[in-house]
Design a protein around this nucleic acid. Structure first.
Length: 645
RNA sequence: GCGCCUGUAGCUCAGUACGGAUAGAGCAAGGGAUUCCUAAUCCCUAGGUCGCAGGUUCGAAUCCUGCCAGGCGCACCA
């Protein structure tokens, strides 16, 4: 449809330019609210009427005279207030759609896009909040790649921060463990640390005097002193591997894992600091509450300033982030070294290193950067962008996009289900924020396990004859589909109050519903092959022959057919819209709606048992079109497609 | 206090970017459909002062102003 609209817009522009000065963009083409009004609607007569101080209806009528006849358009009508409704030539439109199924009309606009997402502190297991981040980020990546953009996916690892330091404290000071003892821990390590981290946080609450030791550990990690730095390294790498395994379960992967330890080791901050000082973007506060700190003035809030370097000379998180953002755009003048971290199939996930390595690829130097980070960090992201601006990198500042989203919270009901202890104060709240420190949260692997378990039981019920490995593999695909759809169905601005019943539901607007629809669709084609030896080649022959016996259809079936075709053809528009608004719930809803439309069609019209071969032909072509579009949509949403379920 | 966000059906949410034709889904509730391509499905019923009050407009859930309610942010934490 995108392609069609673009060419229609050009045609309209050509026909109208003699009489009206309208730009191509002014000629907006929308959809009427009801199918009976038409297939496409032009609303620009209203704008024009305003300019000409005329009645919209009259303007619309005049325009219809100018643009008629239009190639590919069967009928043009003026609707009462002043819309121009177009009725397309169904046969030529459908045939065009079928022939261009494999050739996307989207084209890239950037040289190199960097998407940073996931970014879990490597000191505990991943939880549902992290899953939302990863699903959003990964879907963006898939959509950008579909648009043919060059995309590099980074997952930042804060391996020298407070959170890792706290777990080091837990092992060393509370559990009195050495590296060799930790290495011997057999149980799921990220779960072990989840629990330990919660105990450490509670310990610091009760023993404020331990703060001193806490700072000491952090300092030793930064200055690469043993044994603290060895422990931090062991813990962070081991947990990072767990995270990658968890993310692999939902089909999420990365190109590069940039580590904070290397940002420190390679003195990224020192370089960024000298750049900022040279541009006078930061200054040493000589008085006031921030005395002896290097601060940056914030844009809108008047005199307010943000501390970048503390009075003890250490750099804040934002400072390091500014350096990292500069590096992403290739503006820092320093670079990482890289080594392989994990190889799976033919894909390598690289990690940064602080010494030169052999045969490593190039990363960074993006022309556009997306940071997928929850909305609570909006202020800090703004400061990072301001850092770029103060260095006069206005273009890069404009291309720094904070992909923000709301948190996943826990309902009181889900807390009860998990038997988590909460304070009296927290009991009053309608929902609770996930908190690693308090150990409040649902671990990603636990949730995925529960989804898999339920899916397995459902598969068992329906397909007892499948082999065990078939069943588990299908269950995995279903759990992934269920989770990804769940994370994408909500607008990013909306808080997800997590509820087990909702998340584990496989009926209605859920991932498994979508998967089931496509499984059914595929199974029709499988049966066509089995029973009638009608295969892919016959299908392609049918399409290229251009024989579309549309004349067979009338009444209800014609309406349904056309509704399906028209809706499915909007796929690329939905992808673009989702990228522009960073709202992938649009794409999720689109796939769901298309499934609903198909399911209704499926119930009314038999394909295998069609009345005659012409009905069969047209129905096969119709559902093939849907199958292809759904297949593409699923792959962008990261929803796997089981053979059967 | 300042800034950002949210308020739509019993519940969970779309729809707001760029105002447009009768405000849509799912869940829950009630009723119905399976000798036939997978019932993880489909159909029907019921359910709405779009937080409140003004304003702009031919036209407002959508834009503007004020108010009410809730959330988040405004660290020498990350």
């Amino acid at each position: 449809m995108l392609r069609y609209k673009n060419s229609l817009r050009k045609k309209l522009h050509d026909k109208l330019k003699v009489k009206h000065s309208l730009s191509l963009e002014d000629l907006e083409i929308g959809y009427p609210p009801q199918a009976k009004f038409g297939d496409l609607a032009l609303t620009f007569p209203f704008e024009l009427a305003k300019k000409m101080k005329a009645e919209p209806r009259k303007v619309a009528q005049e325009i219809v005279q100018l643009i008629s006849p239009l190639e590919g358009v069967e009928k043009i009508e003026v609707a009462v207030p002043g819309y121009i409704n177009l009725f397309l030539d169904k046969r030529s439109f459908f045939s065009q759609q079928l022939l261009t199924l494999d050739t996307p009309s989207l084209s890239p606009q950037e040289e190199h896009i960097i998407v940073e997402h996931t970014n879990i502190n490597p000191n505990k297991a991943a939880h549902i909040g992290h899953l939302r981040n990863a699903c959003l980020g990964d879907t963006l990546v898939r959509c950008l790649k579909y648009k043919d953009e060059k995309v590099e996916v980074q997952n930042y690892v804060d391996d020298t921060g407070v959170q890792v330091g706290d777990v080091v404290f837990g092992f060393m000071d509370m559990e009195k463990k050495k590296l060799s003892d930790i290495a011997k821990i057999k149980e799921k390590f990220d779960y072990y640390c989840w629990d330990l981290y919660r105990r450490v946080a509670a310990y610091f609450e009760k023993n404020p005097e331990a703060q001193e030791r806490r700072s000491e550990i952090l300092k030793k990690i930064e200055e690469r002193e043993k044994p603290e730095v060895e422990l931090a390294h062991h813990i962070s790498r081991r947990i990072l591997k767990s995270h990658l395994q968890t993310m692999d379960r939902i089909g999420v992967s990365y190109d590069l894992l940039p580590c904070e330890s290397d940002i420190l080791g390679l003195k990224f901050w020192e370089k960024a600091f000298s750049l900022l000082k040279a541009q006078k973007a930061v200054y040493l506060a000589s008085s006031g509450p921030n005395q002896d700190c290097w601060v940056m003035e914030t844009e809108d809030e008047g005199q307010k300033e943000k501390v970048i370097v503390r009075s003890d000379g250490t750099v804040t998180y934002v400072g390091k982030d500014i350096a990292y953002q500069l590096w992403k755009f290739g503006l820092l003048g320093r670079d990482f070294y890289y080594e392989p971290f994990i190889k799976k199939d033919d894909k390598t996930i690289w990690i940064t290193a602080s010494a030169p390595q052999k045969d490593s690829p190039q990363f960074g130097r993006g022309s556009q950067v997306y940071n997928v980070i929850d909305i609570r960090q909006a202020y800090l992201q703004k400061i990072v962008v301001q850092g770029l601006k103060s260095l006069k990198y206005f273009k890069q500042a404009a291309k720094s996009i904070h992909f923000s989203y709301e948190m996943v919270a826990l309902s009181q009901k889900s807390l009860e289900e998990l038997n988590l202890e909460i304070s009296e104060e927290d009991k009053e709240r309608s929902f609770l924020e996930v908190s690693g420190r308090k150990g409040l949260g649902i671990k990603a692997d636990d949730l995925l396990d529960r989804l898999e378990e339920k899916a397995l039981a459902e598969v068992e019920k329906r397909n007892p004859e499948f082999t065990e490995s078939q069943k588990t593999s299908i269950a995995r695909q279903i759990s992934c589909g269920a989770l990804r759809y769940f994370m994408l169905k909500y607008a990013r601005n909306s808080i997800i109050v997590f509820d087990f019943d909702e998340a584990l539901n496989f009926e209605g607007e859920t991932g498994p519903y979508l998967q089931y629809t496509l499984v059914r669709l595929n199974s029709i084609f499988r049966k066509l092959e089995e029973r009638e030896s009608f295969g892919e080649k016959d299908l392609q022959d049918l399409i290229s022959s251009g024989e579309i016996p549309l004349e067979m259809l009338s009444g209800e079936e014609l309406t349904r057919f056309w509704d399906l075709v028209l809706y499915a053809s909007q796929f690329e528009e939905e992808v673009l819209h989702s990228i522009h608004s960073l709202e992938f719930s649009h794409l999720a809803k689109f796939a769901f709606n298309l499934c609903q439309k198909f399911n209704a069609y499926y119930h009314l019209y038999s394909i295998l048992g069609a009345e005659n071969s012409q009905f069969k032909q047209i129905r096969i072509l119709t559902i093939y079109h849907i199958k292809e579009v759904l297949g593409k949509a699923f792959s962008l949403l990261g929803i796997p497609l089981p053979e059967r379920m």
